[in-house]
Simulated assay, not measured.
Amino acid sequence: MATVTLKGNPVALTGNEVNVGDAAPEVTVVATDLSEKKVGGAKGVVQVLISVPSLDTPVCATETRKFNEAVSQIPGVDVTVISMDLPFASKRFCSTEGIENLTCASDFRNKEFGQKYGVLIAEGPLAGILARVIFVVGKDGKVVYKQIVPEITEEPNYDEVLEAVKKANA
């Protein structure tokens, strides 16, 4: 199982590790309006699944704003930012920050995304929430790119993610 760090301290992740080449498991998350959204699986469009600890932290907020802006330049891509935040908090965040080009969703009901993608933090002060990981899923439902951000408190490599999205969407 993968390990990341939180302020330099190792933290184990739990669940089924999903890697490049694997079929992206189809799971259900909860959108800000409390509707259910299925992510993963073959959807006929490129999906970007962005796992973050909480939109209520500066790094996650910045990451979500940057992806919201970047994906507006790439048509036909379905982007979902997934956290354990309650849908009400996510809705307030999206409204306040003007997030309109991607979906913010929660894995709070079943922790299905965290478990099936292997991104659930297993120990330490953040146990039970999601690590900072990004999956790009091709139109056929296969994972074509994965980035585990090694230090939870740091931002991902945006350029690498966007390059993978453009390549998958070509």
Results as ranks from 00 to 15, higher is better:
R109S: 07
S72E: 15
R65M: 12
L102N: 06
P75L: 05
K66M: 14
P156L: 07
V77R: 03
V165Y: 08
E112Q: 15
L130Q: 00
M84N: 05
T3F: 13
A2H: 06
E154S: 10
D159M: 00
V4G: 01
V52H: 10
P25E: 03
T64A: 13
K111L: 15
E36P: 04
A170S: 12
V137C: 12
D56V: 05
V20S: 10
V133F: 10
V144G: 10
C60V: 05
A23L: 10
D78M: 12
S95Y: 09
N16V: 03
E26Y: 02
I74K: 03
A105N: 11
N110V: 10
Q47E: 15
A31W: 01
V27S: 06
R92Y: 10
L162F: 15
G8D: 00
V18P: 00
T62L: 12
V48P: 09
A127I: 02
F93I: 02
T80D: 11
G138C: 00
D78H: 08
I50C: 02
D159N: 10
E100R: 13
A127T: 05
G138H: 01
E155H: 07
G98M: 10
G98R: 04
N68T: 01
G124F: 06
E160I: 00
N68M: 10
Q115A: 12
A23D: 06
V144M: 05
A89Q: 06
N19D: 14
N157P: 06
V39L: 13
L55F: 07
F113P: 01
K66G: 04
I121C: 01
D56F: 04
E154R: 09
E26G: 03
G98I: 01
G41R: 09
D107M: 11
P10K: 05
E17Y: 09
